[in-house]
């Protein structure tokens, strides 16, 4: 039987496109994301002290009793910019329930440039100036954004690489808020 190469190519392209879309739909549904988180879930979030944009030393463990969304980002990272308005809203919505969003800028840019960027984005949550050593503690942070969800006891609930859906963030925030013991943060 003779086969038409163009038709075969078309069929192959359609099948491959379906696989591609299916793969991404599964990611969006959280299937792959939970696999990403498996190796860190339940482990204590490494503690660190970093400087905030207003010059204060902030220790991660000072948020014990609160759930923390720890977001590694950079000014040069386009996908990170998409998440920032979501984080602004989520901080407003879940802050009263005990959520603290912390952005760690993994940037070579100056403090002034980062401050300018953060102001332009209308950020209402804590931004810290990142250090390579802290990134290493969190597995290298070779992909931005990388986001960790930490429960009230300081344990990692989930980790997400790259831009994810807002609904996945909400699910992980709810999980982080529901785990561990709520205590008054000592700040």
């Amino acid at each position: 039987m003779k086969r038409n190469p163009a038709a075969l190519f078309f069929v192959a392209a359609v099948v491959a496109a379906m696989l591609f879309v299916g793969f991404h739909a599964a990611r969006r549904a959280g299937g792959d994301a939970s696999a990403d988180s498996l190796d860190v879930a339940g482990k204590p979030a490494p503690d660190f002290t970093l400087q905030s944009l207003d010059g204060k030393n902030i220790q991660l463990s000072s948020y014990k009793g609160q759930a923390v969304l720890l977001n590694f980002w950079a000014t040069w990272c386009g996908p990170c910019k998409i998440e920032m308005p979501w984080f602004v809203e989520l901080q407003k919505e879940y802050g009263p329930q005990g959520l603290q969003i912390v952005g760690v800028a993994m940037d070579d840019a100056s403090k002034e440039e980062i401050t300018k960027f953060v102001k332009e984005m209308g950020v209402n949550y804590t931004i810290l100036l990142g250090k390579e050593a802290v990134g290493q503690e969190y597995g290298g942070v070779n992909v931005l954004p990388t986001t960790f969800f930490i429960d009230r006891d300081g344990k990692i609930v989930a980790r997400e690489f790259g831009l994810q859906s807002r609904s996945l963030f909400v699910d992980n925030i709810k999980k982080a808020l529901s785990q561990g013991h709520a205590v008054q943060a000592q700040k």
Binding site: L8, A12, A13, L19, F23, H24, D36, T146
Partner: peptide
């Protein structure tokens, strides 16, 4: 067979593209 080559090439291209699009899976 010659007719299967385009199929193989298309699958290879799109698979590598899909892998590349998965954050953190490929540098």
């Amino acid at each position: 067979q010659m007719t299967n080559k385009p199929l193989a090439i298309a699958l290879l291209l799109v698979t590598s593209c899909a892998l590349a699009q998965s954050p953190g899976k490929k540098a």
